[in-house]
């Protein structure tokens, strides 16, 4: 195993966002009393954990040049079935396994259609978003699952070393995701498929297999996220996960992953999710009127990305391109990333 260097963890892309995030935290700790307290900060981490877990899978999908719009619906179906199982009295581990299994199955269908049906990912997942959502309505008969047993909700609500378990799961998933993406052959083939499909093909990478697997992983992790989600609230509603896909995609792309494929990182996606979490926390703490919420969030997203890109640009000028590697090399000049 190659030695892990700091530069690999915090490349140019991540540092820019990290600085923006730190700036935001600095401003908030002055402006919003109560922000810089451990209960609040750990609360933010727990709140972003569900989105962040899915974002790890989404990052891999997007790096291959795909996209997964169906995660919100996968979240809903998995949460429903896990909730029903937990209510029926399955053990905790069985419930977790069930969540993973359902997520993987639904994600696997996406993967099959993309990789072997050769249908563009956006069409497949737009279609399955609709289909899975419909299935969710049919399976549930429109009814919520309420009154989940305490041994199950403990997964979402127990404290461990000052942090609730969902946040630990998020960190665990992020580390594993990072390891797979950067330290394994599979990870390298993920970048290769997205960065240069022709090259990947010539290098003997089985492109369909990689495409299938990233969608499988995206579904699998969303299934895990669904279990965490269900355990946190102890109740499953039918409209779970409406609009979830855009939150996940936002976390990933704010984290610097290119929508055109070939570049991106797990660290970035996690930072992106945390950034979004801090922003929505700040809106309430700063007592900004709810009517202004959309405008402020929109400006912050644009502002963060613009600052991030200018920080990166100045760092690129400061350091020679070769020492940084390919990730900063092809800077977009007209908003396009190829």
């Amino acid at each position: 195993m190659a030695r892990v260097r700091w530069r690999d963890l915090m490349g140019v892309r991540e540092v820019g966002l990290l600085l923006v995030l730190l700036g935001l935290v600095l401003v908030l700790s002055v402006a919003a009393p109560g922000f810089l307290s451990w209960p609040n900060l750990s609360g933010v981490l727990v709140n972003v954990s569900v989105v962040a877990i899915s974002a790890v899978g989404m990052t891999m999908v997007i790096i291959t040049g795909g996209i997964d719009i169906s995660v919100g619906s996968i979240l809903a179906v998995s949460a429903l079935l896990v909730g029903q199982a937990a209510k029926a009295g399955t053990g905790l581990w069985q419930a977790i396994a069930l969540g993973l299994l359902i997520g993987a199955a639904l994600g696997g269908i996406n993967g099959l259609l993309v990789a072997y049906g050769r249908i563009p990912a956006i069409i497949v997942t737009l279609a399955t978003m609709s289909t899975y959502r419909g299935i969710n309505f049919i399976l549930s008969h429109g009814a919520w699952v309420v009154g989940l047993p305490p041994y199950f909700t403990a997964l979402g609500q127990t404290n461990f070393l000052g942090l609730q378990i969902p946040a630990w799961i998020m960190l665990g998933v992020a580390v594993i995701g990072w390891y797979i993406l950067t330290q394994t052959r599979f990870g390298r083939s993920v970048y290769a498929v997205g960065g240069n499909m022709q090259g990947a093909y010539l290098a003997g990478i089985k492109i369909p297999r990689v495409q299938f697997l990233v969608f499988l992983v995206s579904g699998l992790l969303t299934g895990l996220a669904a279990t965490v989600y269900t355990a946190r609230f102890g109740l499953v509603q039918i409209n779970t996960g409406m609009g979830y896909e855009l939150n996940v995609i936002a976390a990933v792309v704010i984290g610097g992953t290119s929508i055109m494929g070939g570049s991106g990182s797990i660290q970035g996606a996690i930072l992106g999710a945390i950034f979004m979490g801090v922003v929505s926390n700040a809106l309430v703490l700063l007592r900004i009127s709810a009517f202004w919420q959309g405008v402020v969030v929109g400006i912050l997203i644009l502002g963060a990305v613009i600052m991030d890109s200018s920080i990166r640009a100045s760092m690129l000028r400061a350091v020679s391109i070769h020492s940084i590697g390919y990730r900063g090399a092809a800077e977009p000049t007209d908003g396009r990333e190829r």
Partner: peptide, 25 residues
């Protein structure tokens, strides 16, 4: 002191209520 939307989303309702308690001790 405040009116917050939850967009018919339990996670958002949870989050907003938590944040309200922090914002207004």
């Amino acid at each position: 002191v405040d009116i917050r939307p939850s967009e018919e989303d339990q996670q958002l309702a949870f989050q907003v209520t938590t944040d309200l308690m922090t914002a207004y001790p």
